[in-house]
Computed example of a mutant assay.
Amino acid sequence: MQNEQLNLTQEWDKVFPPSDAVDHEKVTFHNRFGITLAADLYKPRGTNGTLPALAVSGPFGAVKEQSSGLYAQAMAERGFLTIAFDPSFTGESGGEPRFMNSPDINIEDFQAAVDYLSVRDDVDSERIGIIGVCGWGGMALAAAAADPRIKATVASTMYDMSRVAANGYFDSADSAEARNQARATVAAQRTADYRSGSYAMAGGVVDPLPEDAPDFVKDYHAYYKTPRGYHPRSLNSNDGWTVIGGSSLMNATLLGYIEEIENAVMIVHGEAAHSYYMGKDAFARLKGDNKEFVSIPGASHTDLYDGGEQNAIPWERITAFLTTHLV
């Protein structure tokens, strides 16, 4: 088991300012597929002994310098040792070819983060949780179902990426005919890519915005394409995934066993989010009295990336939940 030597940026290049209450450093760890992942580690300044720890990732197509880093730093301010990591094939993490997605590998990325945290001398290995944002909220639930070492999970403004890939938004394309048409399109692109020797890119968030763009697309643009959230390594801010990069999601079932999660889960969602139905439906399947759903009135999907204009992220609710179940 060896870590690949990655070329990591050492200067602060996040879309949020650094905190005076937190120490920060770059770290790397590897998953069971041999891919080395890059992470930002945040630790409460001046602490000694072992701490509860959190691994954070998401949104889908974002990097650790965006929303996940903000969550990680904010939770370090509240007493947790945290890491925000770039998923395999993206950001500063390893994995070739670039800008591909694998639900299996991405669930493993979360578990590998738990591996790394578990063996640190400053972490209590019995008090490790995870936070997943947007598409990584669904990955977090899948990881929690797979790995009982994850004692608490927070899924914020979550997407079930396999449901969207297979059924379209609001399940509007939930038919064998629609899925077979999508599969045919991907198959044709695979042939074209192999012939050309390179992978076509799908493009990130649409820019410029068409006049008839849905509100949630406008919200994505307002985050990823403006100084609020733009980052040069972010897929969503730039050329996006490869066209075929996420094709395996259509045949996956990320949330297949979430009814069997015994440890604590919190799902946080904005009531005005286009993705709200995914969070509600996932929560309805969870069992046990250690599950909590937090609904934020008036908040959109991307308001929970960084708080938006109304500071919508319920930091104290999240902190209380994680403190209860990890401390």
Rank of each mutant, 00 (worst) to 15 (best):
A146K: 14
R179C: 08
A178C: 05
S162K: 09
A152Y: 04
A152Q: 02
I150T: 04
A176F: 13
V164E: 00
D147L: 07
T157M: 06
A184K: 06
A145I: 09
T157F: 09
V164W: 00
S175M: 05
A145Q: 03
N180R: 11
T185K: 15
T153L: 03
T185Y: 14
N180P: 02
S156D: 09
D160K: 02
S156V: 15
T157A: 12
I150V: 13
S172W: 02
R183T: 01
Q181I: 12
A152H: 00
D160I: 09
A155L: 02
A184N: 04
T157Y: 09
P148G: 03
A173G: 08
T185F: 14
V154H: 00
D160L: 07
T185A: 15
A188C: 02
A145Y: 05
K151G: 05
Q189F: 03
S175A: 04
A178G: 04
A155E: 01
S172D: 10
A146D: 14
A184W: 08
N167T: 13
Q189R: 11
S156F: 02
A173S: 12
S162D: 09
A184R: 04
A155Y: 00
A187T: 13
A176P: 01
A165H: 03
R163T: 14
R163D: 12
D147T: 10
A188N: 07
S162V: 14
A146L: 13
S162A: 15
N180H: 12
S156G: 02
Y169K: 08
A155Q: 00
V186S: 03
V186Y: 15
M161I: 13
G168W: 01
F170A: 14
G168S: 03
N180K: 09
A184G: 06
F170G: 06
S172I: 11
A187K: 15
I150P: 01
A146M: 11
G168Y: 01
S162M: 10
I150C: 03
A155V: 08
D160T: 06
A178Y: 03
M158A: 04
K151R: 13
A187P: 12
T157R: 03
Y169I: 15
D171S: 07
S156H: 01
R179A: 12
S172V: 12
R183Y: 09
A182V: 08
R163A: 14
R163C: 13
K151Q: 11
A173I: 05
Q189P: 03
Y159K: 01
F170N: 11
Q189Y: 02
A166G: 08
T157Q: 06
A188I: 05
A188Q: 07
M161W: 00
D171A: 11
